[in-house]
Design a protein around this nucleic acid. Structure first.
Ligand SMILES: Nc1ccn([C@H]2C[C@H](O)[C@@H](COP(=O)(O)OP(=O)(O)OP(=O)(O)O)O2)c(=O)n1
Ligand SMILES: [Mg+2]
Length: 1198
DNA sequence: ATCCTCCCCTAC
DNA sequence: TAAGGTAGGGGAGGAT
């Protein structure tokens, strides 16, 4: 296999250093384990104080390295030692300081105990300062650091000089918190000392909400075997775990299968070969990009690490299975020294999510009702919101007492105070404590709809696990659940499918179109960054289960084993996975597991064969959602500084386009600037989420993506010379070239970029004959380093739902029922994004051999795909979808026994008429006399290079709308269209297809030219209207005149907005299926509709409600003007702004919030400091409540 | 040419 | 015994 040079340089993860190896290796291991215990520890032993790499590099260093690069085009700043030395230590996230100090007594088993509380605090301080700095340096400059304090202090000034202002301010804010802690120390020292004693004073009553004994036990099979875990007290348990942890560490190191793998040449098949040139890329002089690599977690992959989709029998009858093509079975997997599945690598204390701060409490009955905290002592272990002082005040006021116990989130306190009573803290236990009870998939219930929005609430997510309905999850009436026998199959399927989650992500959370506020400065250059989180699902899983950080880990529907503890309570633990034939798919796996040949999408059974000690962790969709949101916020923050755009391409991947002007990188070479920007982004992400990311930088998407792939994981790369960079690259690695196209090209002996180069001017023609003109053009352009794909959120063209798993029509429920379920689902999804569609497609997977068992349990097996589509009236009504789909189903005439999957897709979408384009505005558009096709408008928007000077007109100009289309849409008809099917429950479709609509339809072929509004967007205009209504200055002008203002107040904000603005509001869900009553109506209707739609087959009405472009221009700017002009705000004005901020926070528009807050801060009029601070705190609380983390106001300049 | 329909392919 | 979706790009071939 080519690329061996690179591989050896990257031997990172667990490799034993050749020199004084094992002892140092072990001590680092243990040190890492200690850190994972989340405890305050003395500085690590100095392994190599003389090691220069531990110091990090200053900017001067960087420049020096850069200049040696004169003729070459790449610098790899990784010192070789980085991979061998000190790696584990520096892998520890700087968030360590947030962790809880608890059970000091037990701690002594694993590390020297601090002698006093002052020591603890001092340590905290030092560790924070160190963690911060070393991580800064490490991440910025790719140096590992196992250094001591002095060196760091010496380095101080250099760091601050070269670093952005924001870093130091962030630092100082943390510092401030620590100082506060120090101050609090005196008054709380007595209590703190007491907390050092292990405690077990929980009454039986309380026990039910405090299950962590079980959870502690579950990690230790030996204890479970005793069957008397409850007899142990916590101190003993912790003790045991600590010791056990030590043993486990020892065993891992002994076993060291990783080491062996690292040093042996990869035995993976060459069919996965990736980057043939890579063998050379470690040679600085020849290389073509700048690489910053900050950890040694793994060498770079030499092969595709995704499981070949050839296993999809349905698509490729003759293809070999992935095992044949992957040939990975001969990977050397040692027999001895396996990691014990159940042995805990740390005590249960370290299962805490390190990013979370916790509060330790013990409940007791209180006598005075207002002293509901009496009998409780609280230990705040880190940065909380509200801060420790506030919490202490609240506690004191309400009777805090003594003794620590379970670990809670601070809301337990705040919400108790709010309610005026002691709330059971079960709901506030830290997530990992909950997790321990039942490590099952956390679902967003459905990724769509209101559920998704509220899924940010941690409490909700936690309760998901609690309220586990007792039904058997696998069986129904003794049968395996299928679409045919389980009426609720689809619902639970969609909420547990990872593919459904990642597939729908991009369009569901379409990014905000902020930024681009100024035209790019003259002389600025466009760059594209690709930010991709490393093994995303696995990284998140490891936040939940940090004890497995050093083990090979995969994410899947974890096979669990039911165990009973002494109380007879059923608990679930990860199974030992003796299953070697499970067809459960692994979503992804960490880089340790990848060394064994485990790949994304691989069957669990196959993975276990490759890696018997593989740990399978459950999905956590709510957390993917929140990590993703946090990352997006960070990226917008950076993009905004360079007049940039962010396109979130999936839950773990985003492109950023920036325009860099010479002023932006004053003093330093452009490459240095880009490199440090990339590292700053990575650092910001890591600090906020504990997840590592890789960043690629290039002139376009293609190069950015390739660069990131090249250095992944946990590294960044700046492409300097595209030609050198692409030299030798396999065509397969280009975006859009997959297995099939690769095969076609290979058949004509076109394998690498160089092969295309050699074709010269003929390339496009030659390749075109093989793969078609469009793809050929793309390939040739890519090979020449060109890629004009814009970095912009894209308009949705289709929306649908399908299920090709568990489809067996051998039960009560037939294809009609499934179609109904799909139609419901599609309507639900369309409702949440406010679109309607006028074309429906039914897709069916038909088994080629219905008698044959597919390779995958309940899978579709080898199939033929068929589909048929039809026009429908513009709607999102599931009844319409359903009846149209049934007709399509009849037409396709597929035998129901052979159906293995079905799907419904709606296209020709049009967005609802909402959001910033009031009818009056629309009618003004109608009066325009300019003629320009909307198509041009939309396309222009998507082409960044041609329209960069168009920014100041982010709001669409009505002069650019197609007048022909518009004039054919009188307002009354627009209204009619709008209300057509909106209230499906109450006013069934029927009348909607008034002939007038169809006859007024413009020419066909106008599908692309609609824009679709961002769902749930709050416009200032709408907020103002609501404010007017509430303050009595305006009347409710809608037909919902039965509302009183106080009733209005009770409704959710969004509904209030709708009512105040006279939208069509249906307070009941339009998506619910009511079988009996509605069916007859529906049937009648649908017949009528069908005939109409046939009549008007080619007469589509084009609804021109234009989405507001540029949230900023439409909302923030007007609001700023409002604030400026309204210098003496009254209650309603402030309430308005607060409500607006609330909505923005809910919609993840943090960057808008920040802009707005900053402008209020700088206000000199009646919007004074108190007002500003109130708003700021409102936002901080809102973010914390909905997103679960605190924003750093100092960092954000607030 | 340019459209539409019914696929296939690809990336997450 | 698990949760093999979703959405965009585009080719082939037919209708205009
Ligand atoms: N066949 C696949 C591919 C991906 N995913 C999910 C899991 C991944 O974590 C996430 C992101 O996909 P990536 O391709 O970015 O893969 P990772 O982030 O896991 O790994 P890498 O480090 O290669 O980016 O999508 C999945 O469920 N099934
Ligand atoms: Mg990724």
């Amino acid at each position: 296999m080519r690329g061996s040079t690179r591989k050896s340089s990257g031997r990172g993860f667990d490799s034993v250093p050749a020199d004084d190896g094992f002892r140092n290796y072990m001590s680092r291991k243990i040190e890492l384990q200690r850190k994972q215990f989340g405890l305050v520890l003395p500085p690590p032993p100095q392994l190599h104080p003389e090691d220069r790499s531990s110091l990090g590099v200053s900017n001067e260093d960087l420049q020096r390295e850069q200049t040696t690069d004169a003729n070459g085009s790449c610098v790899d700043v990784r010192p070789e030692s980085q991979f061998a030395e000190g790696s584990s230590i520096d892998n520890v996230p700087p968030t360590q300081t947030k962790k809880l100090v608890r059970f000091h007594k037990n701690l002594e088993r694993v590390c020297p105990a601090p002698t006093s509380v002052s020591d603890v605090l001092e340590n905290l301080k030092q560790r924070h300062s160190k963690a911060h700095k070393s991580s800064l340096r490490k991440r910025k400059f790719g140096k590992m650091s196992s250094s001591h304090e002095k060196q760091l202090h010496n380095d101080d000034s250099a760091a601050n000089d070269g670093e952005s202002q924001s870093h130091s301010s962030s630092f100082s804010s943390m510092r401030g918190i620590l100082d506060k802690l120090q101050k609090r120390h005196d008054s709380y020292s007595l209590r703190r000392k007491r907390t050092a004693e292990p405690v077990l004073e929980i009454s039986e009553d309380d026990w039910s909400v405090f299950p962590q004994k079980n959870s502690g036990l579950r990690l230790d099979p030996e204890r479970l075997d005793f069957g008397d875990g409850l007899e142990l007290d916590e101190s003993m348990m912790s003790h045991c775990h600590a010791e056990l942890a030590g043993k486990t560490i020892q065993r891992i190191a002994d076993a060291s299968p990783l080491t062996q793998l690292m040093d042996s040449p990869s035995s993976l098949d060459d069919s996965f070969t990736y980057r043939s040139k890579e063998a050379d890329s470690n040679n600085d002089a020849d290389a073509d990009c700048v690489v910053v690599k900050s950890t040694s977690t793994a060498n770079s992959q030499q092969h595709r690490n995704e499981y070949s989709s050839e296993k999809y029998e349905g698509f490729e009858p003759n293809s070999p299975t992935y095992l044949q093509s992957g040939g990975s079975l001969d990977v050397d997997v040692p027999e001895s020294g396996e990691i014990e599945r159940h042995s805990c690598m740390g005590s249960y204390e370290n299962k805490r999510n390190p990013a979370e701060t916790s509060t330790s409490v013990i409940p007791k009955r209180s006598i005075r009702p207002d002293l509901f905290f009496s009998g409780i002592v609280v230990l705040v272990n880190g940065h909380t919101n509200p801060d420790a002082t506030t919490l202490m005040r609240l506690l004191h006021k309400h009777g805090e007492a003594a003794k620590p116990t379970p670990v809670c989130r601070p809301e337990w306190i705040t919400e108790s105070v709010e309610k005026g009573a002691l709330l059971p803290f079960g709901d506030y236990l830290l997530q990992d404590v909950m997790d321990a009870k039942a490590p099952r998939t956390k679902s967003l219930k459905s990724f769509f709809g209101a559920d998704a929005a509220s899924a940010h609430s941690e409490a909700d997510a936690d309760r998901c696990i609690e309220t586990d309905p007792s039904k058997s999850t696998y069986h129904i009436n003794g049968l395996v659940r299928t679409v045919g026998n389980d009426p609720n199959f689809l619902e639970s399927y969609f909420s547990n499918s990872r593919l459904s989650y990642i597939g729908s992500f991009k369009q569901r959370v379409k990014a905000v179109e902020a930024a681009g506020t100024r035209p790019p400065k003259a002389g600025s250059q466009r760059f594209v960054l690709l930010v991709d989180l490393d093994c995303f699902f696995a990284s998140v899983a490891l936040k939940n289960f940090p004890q497995y950080r050093n083990a090979p880990v995969a994410v899947g529907h974890s096979p669990t084993v039911d165990l009973k503890n002494a109380d007879g309570i059923q608990i679930k633990v990860p199974s030992p996975s003796k299953v070697t034939n499970s067809s459960s798919e692994l979503s992804t796996c960490n880089y340790i597991a990848r060394k064994f040949g485990v790949k994304k999408g691989m069957f669990l059974g196959d993975a276990i064969k490759l890696c018997p000690q593989l740990v399978v962790l459950p999905y956590d969709f709510p957390q993917y959602e929140s990590v993703s949101g946090i990352v997006a916020e960070k990226l917008h923050f950076f993009a905004d500084q360079f007049n940039g755009f962010v396109e979130q391409v999936s839950c773990d991947e985003s492109y950023i386009e920036i325009n860099v002007s010479p002023q932006d990188h004053t003093g330093q070479p452009l490459d240095n600037f880009l490199r440090s920007l990339a590292e700053r982004i990575r650092l910001a992400i890591f600090e906020a989420t504990d997840c590592t990311a890789s960043v690629g930088v290039g002139r376009n998407k293609l190069l950015a993506k390739l660069a990131a792939d090249k250095v992944k994981p946990d590294a960044s790369c700046v492409v300097k010379d595209w030609q050198d960079f692409l030299d030798g690259l396999a065509l397969r690695d280009l975006h859009g070239i997959g297995r099939k196209i690769e095969r076609k090209l290979t058949a004509h002996s076109l394998c690498t970029v160089n092969d295309i180069w050699e074709l010269g001017g003929d390339a496009e023609r030659v390749v075109g004959e093989i793969v078609g003109p469009a793809i050929a053009q793309k390939i040739v352009q890519f090979c020449n380093g060109k890629d004009d794909r814009p970095v912009r959120p894209q308009l949705r063209k289709t929306i649908g739902a399908e299920c090709n798993y568990g489809v067996r029509f051998d039960g009560l429920y037939g294809p009609d029922y499934m179609i109904k379920g799909l139609a419901d689902e599609v309507e639900k999804r369309m409702t949440t994004v406010s679109v309607r569609g006028s074309k429906l497609t039914l897709k069916i997977m038909k088994s080629k051999d219905p008698t044959k068992m597919p390779e995958k349990f309940l899978g579709h097996g080898r199939c033929e795909n068929v589909s048929k589509s039809t026009d429908i009236p513009l709607t999102r009504n599931c009844e319409v979808f359903c009846s149209a789909a049934l007709k399509l189903y009849e037409k396709l005439g597929v035998d129901k026994e052979s159906i293995r999957g079905m799907g419904l897709v709606v296209s020709s979408l049009e967005s609802d008429a909402e959001d910033g384009s009031s009818p009056s505005k629309l009618s003004s558009w109608l009066k325009s006399d300019q003629k320009k096709s909307l198509v041009e408008e939309v396309k222009g928007r998507n082409s960044p290079l041609e329209h960069q000077n168009d920014f100041e007109s982010n709001v669409p100009r009505y002069s650019q709308l197609d007048q022909d289309v518009l004039t054919e849409l009188p307002e009354d008809i627009l209204k009619e269209v709008k209300s057509m099917y909106g209230k499906s429950a109450e006013s069934p479709p029927r009348r909607a297809t008034a002939p007038s609509i169809h006859s007024s339809r413009p020419k066909q072929g106008r599908k692309v030219e609609k824009t679709i509004s961002i769902p749930g967007q709050a416009s200032v205009k709408r907020m103002l209207k609501l404010a007017m209504v509430k303050s009595g200055k305006d009347k409710l002008e809608c037909n919902n005149d039965e509302f009183t203002l106080s009733q209005l107040d009770c409704l959710p904000l969004e509904t209030q907005l709708q009512i105040a603005n006279g939208d069509d509001v249906t307070l009941k869900s339009a998506a619910t299926f009511r079988p009996s009553s509605r069916r007859s109506i529906a049937t009648n209707n649908i017949d009528g509709l069908e005939s109409n739609s046939v009549d008007n087959h080619n007469n589509k009405s084009t609804c021109l409600f234009q989405k507001s472009r540029g949230f900023y221009y439409q909302n923030i700017q007007p609001l700023q003007r409002f604030i400026k002009s309204n210098s003496h705000p009254d209650y309603h004005d402030i309430k308005l702004v607060l409500d607006f901020l609330t909505v923005c926070v809910e919609e993840h528009r943090l960057e808008d919030v920040i802009v707005l807050l900053r402008s209020i801060k700088s206000m000199q009029n009646g919007w004074d400091v108190a007002c500003y601070e109130h708003m700021r705190e409102h936002v901080v609380r809102g973010v914390y409540r909905s997103r679960g983390y605190s924003i750093d106001t100092v960092w954000l300049g607030l």
